[in-house]
Amino acid sequence: MIDKFEKLSLYLQFSFVQYALIVGVLIAICSSLLGVTLVLKRFSFIGDGLSHVAFGAMAIAAVVGLTNDMPLILAVTTASAILLLRTGQNTKIKGDAAVAMISVGALAIGYLLMNVFSKSSNVSGDVCSTLFGSVSILTLTVTEVWLSVILSAVVFIVFILFYNKIFSVTFDENFAKATGVKTGLYNLLIAVVIAVIIVLAMNLVGSLLISALVIFPALSAMRVFKSFRAVTVCSAVFSVFAAGLGILIAIMFGTPVGSTIVGTDIVGFLIFFLIGTFTKSKA
């Protein structure tokens, strides 16, 4: 155990580990902010669909040979988010089907492209790391770090500025709309922010595990706290702890980063679940 910690303190001096921690914490905060909204608006399925779209876009970027693939992925994912929201609003059932179609389609095409065109000798390894994010967080370039920092800052500022509107639209869309809140616009904003978060989070946990990063903190906080603000703050703190701890554990024990973070999220959720049950039965 002692040498594990020695190994950790040694690793912490490497810039790639520092980058991973900085970016990981930022992504954790961003992805948790909209969690409550996504869970309550039944938007979580959109998050899932979009992450697959992001995977497809990443495959295309790899095939075309882009060195910096983030702008392309960002553009494609944002466009899909807007598209999905539009179809989802018109008719509910068709919206669900559209999400399923787009997400499974993007997943299959992405894999196909990577298989046919990839010059890498280890295609399934590449695919696996894109889906589960095993190494990308530890191989960030300085540009990617800056891009992540800037995008996180934008997401954070947008969330703070529109916090009250997001609350209204999430709690009671009809009331908000009737009193002149531009709900269409804010739904769009929420979709775009989700897209940005997904692209960011792909680096950390891979595209299959993103939903976990969004949902676990929100569900955990909702078990214990009673106001929207407390739940939001708690989700962010929860997410930072889970991500930070997950990254450290992954480095110490050489486990895959993404799944380790989700593992700590699950443990955290169980703890909050117990706290929630205990405090409720006492009250």
Binding site: L40, F225, S227, F228, R229
Partner: peptide, 12 residues
């Protein structure tokens, strides 16, 4: 939605 929404009376 409102049934399991975590919001305080004040916020609403």
């Amino acid at each position: 939605v409102q049934k399991d929404f975590p919001a305080s009376v004040w916020e609403i």
